[in-house]
Design a protein around this nucleic acid. Structure first.
Lengths: 340, 340
DNA sequence: GCAAACGACCAAACCGTTTTAAATTTTGCC
DNA sequence: GGCAAAATTTAAAACGGTTTGGTCGTTTGC
């Protein structure tokens, strides 16, 4: 049913009906109520594409999905969707070819120009991120999940990676560990740099020299966790503790330790960062995994809020949120063997 | 830039330009080329919302995302996006509240009526699925990822769950196992039923009685894998082998066995279904995990193809694809201890 | 040599809303 | 009761494309 027919049935003009439904003030309360009731009864809904054309709003926000193993992606999306569903705003997912860095910029560019979305969410930024510069230049509203060091102003939501890893590392030091290995995320990403800094600062604060041979970077996969942990554990003296970037990495470390006959929580301590997944929980691992924890789903939901605020006109400089991270100690951390 | 201005600059009518860009035949090859070149040079792109309004096509397909731990979701989406990105078709994600079954139908209904999408993908159907009936009734094109037993005609892409589990179970029987436990997916889903059937048929074919105490259903989480495996292993006589529905379930089973001092691949055999994730690979588990394997990402990509075919007018009854499943034997399966 | 068919292009109608500007009705006040 | 101001309602103009139904030469068929 079109607006025209619907209005005719009500004996009103399309204008009034449109206004009544959109909540404009210049329509009497009585008519508004009647219009709303009849709309529900007759099932009238404005054609979304006509609305989009005339208002210039897309009613959607864009998310770019990387190709390589993004298991936290669906949690973030879940949170986003949860909050956005109530607002009648769509989520539009675009794929990104990780292999072609040029393609990424083009993709964002297309997304911004095409008018399909009102705003974009940028993930895993780098300190000087090209995407951020581009979106700013194009005037497309965007929220960064993470942060960037660039001069370009940007709204962001990030967790305190530096503080989380500093505390995790400090805790291991407190327990008596001196050789602490770190398996971090992809090199170059801001969050990896922040974690590196937290790690180094914790060491430095206690006068423990930084050993580059104990640090590795890469995607969050069980395989890399295993390989890196394995190669670290083959060093002499071997590390007595690990700080790991993700749950998958932790799985790999557990395997590596086990494969070398080392008992986690006694001969090797592990702390990982847990984004909180319904399907893989730190508490259930054996031994249960000490972790810095921050819900990816909650971040997604909050990101939706922030994007909405951005679109409502709140200035970019005000939309910046840093979340503290919990440190939850479980069985995988203990004093190193020699100091027991 | 609008079509009008752009056409004027070229000295052509909007009609001709529109046709040239859309590839209609009634425009000379020479002009078409000129139009294409100038469009690229001047950066003209038709306003997508105007196109949507006038054509009535949304240029998007919808995917409904469940709330509970869908770690395969992002892989499927990745495949989908990969293929759809080239077609300039958007993917629209809607959240679903798992707790409210009524809400789900409403959601699909809204999606279909709202005109935001040209087609929908339905996941994890049930034998008599309400969503399928609804979409059929509303005349909204849709593809089911999985299958349904309903009379309602529907296009689908599914993997041969029954065959996969039959072969997995048969293989365990061949190795000498007699008490084989099965940790399946959520009760009521078609794929769970198919897997149950494969399991039972394999047992029956070899005259092994079916024992309901060896079968469990639930979400694919490590926690349920652990709990079920644990309770099965506490039975006497205990099962000597497991068939598991997912990688996460397998992780739980590994943990359970280990926690009881049982060695996987010697005292307990395990075969799981692997949807192929970049971040967690069966080959890298210790011991490496025997698995029935089928790529979720490939299924996503193919689903995109099929939806496109559906939209191009290919009849529903022709769009039905059943994929065979590989069985890959690794270290986690071996003859049971007593028969060694 | 002439009508019919064809190729290349165009003017105008239309898609279904929102919004501007103007018209109409109500209300408030003396 | 009359008049200006306020409160409602409306007609018509966008929004930016696609598509229908021509027009105007040029070929083609016989």
């Amino acid at each position: 049913m079109k607006l025209r027919e619907f209005a005719q049935q009500l004996g009103l003009s399309p204008t009034t009906v449109s206004r009544a439904l959109s909540g404009y003030p210049e329509v009497s309360e009585k008519t508004r109520k009647r219009v709303a009731e009849e709309a529900a009864r007759l099932g009238y809904r404005p054609n979304i594409n006509a609305v989009r054309l005339v208002t210039g709003r897309a009613g959607a926000i864009g998310v770019v999905m990387g190709r390589s193993g993004e298991f936290h992606f669906s949690e973030f999306m879940g949170g986003l969707a949860e909050r956005l569903g109530a607002e009648d705003i769509d989520i539009l997912v675009s794929p990104m070819d990780d292999k072609d860095p040029k393609g990424e910029i083009q993709l964002y560019s297309r997304l911004a120009v095409s008018g399909r979305v009102d705003a974009v969410i940028v993930h895993s930024p780098e300190p000087n991120d090209e995407r951020i510069a581009l979106l700013h230049k194009l005037g497309m509203p965007f929220l960064v999940h993470g942060r960037s060091d660039t001069d370009v102003p940007h709204a962001w939501l990030d967790i305190d990676n530096e503080g989380a890893i500093r505390r995790a590392t400090s805790h291991l030091i407190d327990l008596g560990h001196r050789r602490i290995a770190m398996i971090n995320g992809r090199q170059g990403r801001t969050f990896s740099l922040h974690r590196d800094k937290g790690y180094r600062d914790a060491l430095q604060a206690r006068g423990i020299p930084f050993d580059p041979r104990l640090v590795a970077h890469g995607n969050f996969t069980d395989e890399l966790g295993f390989r890196f942990a394995r190669s670290f554990l083959e060093q002499t003296p071997r590390p007595t503790a690990f700080v790991a970037g993700s749950m998958m990495t932790a799985l790999g470390i557990y395997r590596a330790a086990r494969s070398m006959g080392l008992e986690i929580g006694r001969e090797v301590s592990v702390i990982a960062h847990d984004d909180v997944f319904p399907y893989l929980t730190a508490d259930n691992m054996v031994p249960s995994l000490s972790a810095t924890r921050s819900s990816m789903r909650a971040a997604g939901a909050r990101s939706a809020d922030l994007v909405l605020q951005l679109l409502a006109g709140r200035p970019t400089s005000e939309v910046q949120e840093l979340w503290p991270v919990e440190l939850i100690l479980r069985e995988s951390t203990a004093p190193p063997p020699q100091s027991k």
